[in-house]
Design a protein around this nucleic acid. Structure first.
Lengths: 130, 130
DNA sequence: CTGCATCCTGCGAGATACTG
DNA sequence: CAGTATCTCGCAGGATGCAG
């Protein structure tokens, strides 16, 4: 039928909006850095290349699965470079690319804002909770 | 017993790291704006106050539950102000606070970076996928 | 050391229905 | 109009075991 129920209509709008968001550059980047571990990896690699093992130690909270998954995603996006050295045992180094360092800089802006305004937020929270 | 298995040790490290992250201001703010709808609400309110109904229309992808939840969270953090007018029917307006506008500015920085570098990322992706 | 494959669980988010 | 309450379900992410 040509007419739709309100529910169907809403679902269509939902889908259209999702498609719209999927095409938005800002959204793509935001979703990338929104990942729990991405910014931590950026920070860890911020001061020079690191081996896989080093990263597991530095970012103690990440499971191996998540760390690998994060690194793969960052590599795919050209933010991190992966270098395999055929020693025994194998050695794999990760480092930020130019693009990665650029993004890292933006994230630091965010960090600066956070440290500058977190007190206001906390204050608002306790005020709200009472 | 005093000694722990490797698995237990890892779990402890995990917990400690989580606690560390929980205390990090940058992380708190990042998790706030990481929420799928937060930045959209910031953007929607960026050009003046809006009624609840307006927001549901502007952000067509958000379910009512998510929109309300998002607005409550932002209000709690002092980023958005909620004003109830006792008309019939009830009228509720939302607008960015000073703090909210400040955060919005930072998010726009991120958006600018995204629009400036998205091409490189897309390019890296297609290169990686082949 | 550096990973991939599999299984399993908890929680977030949508759908739906009701209220002031 | 502006929400709240409840139920259900998919899937992100942890645990574990195996491989090059």
């Amino acid at each position: 039928m040509a007419t739709l129920t309100a529910a169907q209509r809403r679902q269509q709008d939902r889908a259209a909006y999702d498609a719209f968001l999927a095409a938005c550059p800002a959204r793509k980047v935001l979703e990338r850095i929104s990942d729990k571990w991405v910014t931590l990896v950026l920070a860890a690699l911020g001061d020079g290349p690191k081996r896989y093992r080093d990263l597991t130690r530095i970012i103690a909270g990440a499971s191996q699965k998540m760390l690998t998954q994060t690194l793969r995603a960052l590599e795919r996006d050209g933010l991190v470079a992966r270098t395999v050295t055929a020693e025994v045992p194998v050695r794999v180094d990760y480092e930020l690319t130019e693009l990665g360092r650029s993004l890292h800089a933006v994230v630091r802006q965010l960090k600066d804002w956070a440290e500058c305004h977190i007190a206001e937020i906390e204050q608002a929270r306790t005020a709200y909770d009472s």
